[in-house]
């Protein structure tokens, strides 16, 4: 369950990064549709946080330790909302570039989360 979610968020984060990166390339600020996209990715991040905590609560143990796992879960959930707020007050192409960067960071965090949980065989 959590592995599938991790992969799904990684893929959607990369898609969001490409989309906002394209907006930055076209010299456009983030628009309503972008914010809907960010909301979807953010929602997935929050679901992942909840699922991760539930898994911990029901006896699951991450390969690399609980503290690191929780820290990465929180970071992943906060990443896109934080850059989204930054782009709200930066109505230029650089706001779009900021969201794209945040989404790339999220994708990297998902790769790390996959390892930390001990993905695949756990």
């Amino acid at each position: 369950m959590i592995d599938a979610l991790t992969v799904a968020i990684g893929v959607t984060a990369l898609a969001l990064a490409a989309w906002c990166g394209f907006a930055a390339y076209r010299d456009e600020p983030t628009k309503d549709w972008h914010f809907i996209g960010m909301a979807v990715v953010s929602l997935l991040g929050i679901i992942q946080l909840v699922v991760g905590l539930v898994q911990l609560g029901s006896g699951g143990t991450p390969k690399d330790g609980t503290a690191i796992f929780v820290a990465y879960l929180i970071g992943a959930a906060a990443c896109v909302p934080a850059t989204g707020f930054l782009s709200l007050s930066e109505r230029t192409r650089w706001g779009s570039a900021t969201v794209a960067a945040g989404a790339v960071v999220l994708a990297v965090l998902e790769v790390r989360l996959f390892d930390i949980w001990g993905g695949g065989h756990a």
């Binding site: 934080a82 960067a101 945040g102």
Partner: peptide, 14 residues
Amino acid sequence: GTGPGRLLVALYGV
């Protein structure tokens, strides 16, 4: 922290 600086703020924040 505005314009291109906004991107730097995000990266330094991370």
